[in-house]
Simulated scan of single mutants.
Amino acid sequence: MPTYYEDIEVGDTEAHGSYEVTEDEIVEFAEQYDPQEFHTDPEAAEDTMFGGLAASGWHTAAVCMRLLVETMEKAGWASQGARGVDELRWIKPVRPGDELSIEYEVVEKREGDRPGVGEVDSRLTGYNQDDEPVITWIGLGMIEKRAAGE
């Protein structure tokens, strides 16, 4: 049974994960989308402020987005996509071998102005294997409303 807008409450939380980030994946993603040496060259990365290879923040966001979609599918959310993301922060570098997980909390919901769709804003926090936050954002979700009579 789908989870509609009306079924979601501010304060609802859910945790999900895990996903191991590999060195090969970090380099491959960065070579294609964020080709800075601290993401693409382990040796050169040693001499940067990161002191070693670090995943692109966009890579970290993509991994956490995948985990969020899996969480929403597991919960049966009737997702209709998102209006955007607010307050994106990269808190701590993600390194080869890090195991990521996420937690989200519903922080606000509104009726919205789209017919049949409500707005649900959720704070996502991505964690590494040591339960240290590595990324946060507020997702501006759109969730289908229950049809009349359901």
Rank of each mutant, 00 (worst) to 15 (best):
A148T: 14
W58C: 08
A55R: 07
A148E: 15
S56K: 06
P42E: 13
V94M: 10
V63Q: 02
H39Q: 07
E105W: 03
G17K: 15
P42D: 11
A61R: 05
A15F: 14
L140T: 05
N128E: 11
Y19V: 06
M65Q: 11
I8L: 04
Y104D: 02
K92Q: 12
I135N: 10
V27P: 03
L88C: 07
Q32N: 11
D121S: 08
Y5L: 03
L53H: 10
V85I: 14
D24A: 15
V27L: 03
H59E: 02
E70H: 08
M1D: 14
H39F: 08
E111A: 09
C64F: 07
G141Y: 01
S56H: 06
L53C: 04
G84A: 03
K109I: 03
E6W: 10
F38A: 13
A61D: 07
G97W: 02
V21S: 00
M1H: 12
Y127G: 09
D131S: 09
D41R: 08
R123N: 06
E28K: 11
Y127T: 08
Q129M: 09
G51A: 00
L124H: 12
M49W: 08
Q36D: 10
I26T: 13
L100G: 13
V69N: 10
E23I: 00
Y4Q: 04
E28T: 13
I143M: 02
Q32W: 07
T22W: 07
P42G: 06
W58E: 12
L124S: 04
Y104K: 15
E87S: 07
W137S: 08
E105H: 06
V120C: 02
G51F: 03
R89A: 12
P93D: 15
I102W: 11
A147C: 05
K74W: 04
A78K: 01
R114Q: 12
P35G: 05
I135Y: 14
A75P: 00
P96C: 04
V27K: 07
E103Q: 13
A30H: 05
E31P: 05
D47K: 06
K92L: 07
A45N: 03
E37G: 03
E99G: 12
A75N: 09
E70T: 01
K145T: 12
A82C: 05
W137F: 15
E70P: 09
R123W: 07
I135E: 11
Y5F: 15
C64P: 06
G84T: 01
S56A: 04
Y19G: 01
V10T: 09
A30I: 01
I135L: 12
Y104F: 15
G139D: 09
E37W: 09
M65T: 13
P96L: 00
Y33V: 01
R110T: 11
S18L: 01
E23Q: 14
A44T: 01
C64T: 15
L88R: 07
A55K: 14
H16M: 13
K74D: 15
Q32V: 12
G51C: 01
P2Y: 05
E31Y: 02
E31N: 14
A75Q: 14
V120M: 09
Y19F: 11
M142S: 07
T71K: 10
T71N: 10
Y33M: 08
T48D: 05
D41S: 03
T13A: 00
A82H: 12
A30L: 04
G126D: 04
F38E: 09
G84V: 00
G11A: 02
A75F: 03
L140Q: 15
G76T: 01
